[in-house]
């Protein structure tokens, strides 16, 4: 996912908040009685097919039980002894070319 984000230039907003996305985050605010009987009844008598359909929809979008990890782990390690790679981040260091770095920002 992170990879695709970098390539798309225009529609980052859509990617994050886009219409397909809104459907996936299931946050519908509903008033709830303390008894909550209606809801469980509905759940109980849902036709078989409908329930699996719902599940599939959820799985399609994303795994709702995805593990909660903030650490960014899936970086493919690059071989930083490669000369071209070294050059590409040369100016991110104070030992690099300051005027070129200034143009960046």
């Amino acid at each position: 996912l992170a990879k695709t984000v970098s390539r798309q230039n225009g529609n980052l907003m859509q990617l994050v908040y886009g219409p397909s996305v809104i459907a996936s985050t299931t946050t519908s605010q509903e008033a709830h009685d303390s008894s909550e009987s209606d809801d469980s009844d509905e759940d109980f008598f849902m036709p078989k097919g409908e329930r699996t359909k719902q599940l599939n929809e959820n799985l399609d979008v994303d795994n709702i039980d995805m593990e909660d990890i903030s650490k960014f782990n899936n970086i493919q390690l690059k071989d930083w002894s490669d000369e071209d790679l070294v050059k590409s981040i040369r100016d991110r260091f104070v030992t690099g070319d300051w005027s070129r770095a200034a143009q960046r920002g």
């Binding site: 946050t27 605010q29 709830h32 009685d33 994303d62 709702i64 995805m66 593990e67």
Partner: peptide, 18 residues
């Protein structure tokens, strides 16, 4: 306890942030 409106969520993802 009267009515409390709960925001309903599904699954364990983003548990801490939620």
């Amino acid at each position: 306890m009267g009515k409390t409106s709960y925001v309903r969520l599904k699954g364990s993802r983003q548990f801490r942030q939620r």
